[in-house]
């Protein structure tokens, strides 16, 4: 089912705070990977929470397939959208397989028992995220990156149409980062709509179809194709620091780095 999730001139402020963003338009389409980038505190996580309906915008709307997201029941919403928060701190020790099975929650019947189909889906998600070998491990004893992959598996087990992922690769090694981004690309090809927050601009440039760039206190300052968003002037505005963009000598992809203050002085 092709889905379209959009924020329609949404404005959001936390209680007793300034607006995090004003009149923001952003969208996630089936088949596309949308990258959300920007410096710390620019409102990336907030935008994701608004998109998934956890926070209600003070003005504007979030629309899922041209219907207001707030008109869906929470379980209907959870079957369409899955949200992976930036920080997940569990308190119970569960096995990896149990953690992945938790993702089946919105599909369970009134008695909330797992059916064979649910276990089958969980197995597939373990396979997709290369976590089959962790199956019986206690989730609490996993490394940071292993946890992230297992949590991604549990989000996939929710079988949503749209994935909203907040820094799913922040703790991953270079190999697994690329693996996860490649997985997201594959999922998008199979019809998922994906929004992913990341601090890795090189990967964002390489793997995302469109990018949304946020700046602290300004909201979305640019969105569109990666090459139109990742320019030196826009990035320098967003990060309030000199950012350089060049072409990778081998791959030809954009290569982005921040100048250290010393380097800047020398120039």
């Amino acid at each position: 089912m092709t889905r379209c999730l959009e924020a329609d001139s949404a404005t959001f402020a936390y209680e007793d705070g300034l607006d995090v963003f004003t009149n923001v338009c952003a969208s996630v389409h089936s088949g596309h990977v949308t990258g959300i980038v920007g410096p710390n505190g620019s409102g990336k996580s907030t935008l994701l929470r608004v998109l998934c309906g956890l926070l209600k915008p003070q003005a504007g709307h979030v629309m899922l397939d041209r219907k207001r997201l707030s008109s869906f029941s929470s379980l209907e919403r959870a079957r369409a959208l899955a949200f992976l928060p930036q920080a997940v701190v569990p308190i119970f020790s569960l096995s990896v397989f149990e953690v992945v099975c938790l993702g089946r929650y919105p599909h369970l019947g009134p008695l909330r028992g797992l059916r064979p189909h649910d276990r089958h889906v969980a197995e597939r998600c373990l396979h997709d995220t290369e976590t089959v070998s962790l199956r019986q491990r206690d989730f609490m004893t996993l490394s940071g990156g292993e946890r992230q992959r297992v949590l991604l598996a549990s989000i996939l087990a929710q079988e949503p149409d749209v994935l909203l992922l907040d820094e799913p690769t922040s703790a991953l090694d270079i190999h697994h980062q690329v693996e996860i981004f490649a997985l997201l690309r594959r999922l998008a090809r199979n019809g998922y709509g994906i929004a992913v927050v990341t601090h890795d601009l090189d990967h964002a440039a390489h793997f995302c179809d469109t990018l949304v760039l946020l700046a602290p206190g300004k909201g979305v300052i640019a969105s569109g194709l990666p090459e139109t968003v990742l320019t030196e002037s826009l990035l320098t505005t967003a990060y309030a620091a000199p950012i350089r963009v060049a072409e990778h000598p081998v791959t030809g992809a954009p290569l982005i780095w921040a100048e250290t203050p010393e380097e800047g002085n020398e120039c």
């Binding site: 949200f83 701190v89 569990p90 929650y105 919105p106």
Partner: peptide, 21 residues
């Protein structure tokens, strides 16, 4: 509430994202 408390064990955001009120 058992199934919902399992979800809450992984934090209120993940639980809310899964459709738990």
């Amino acid at each position: 509430q058992g199934g919902k408390l399992d979800q809450l064990g992984f934090g209120h955001e993940l639980a809310a994202g899964r459709g738990v009120n």
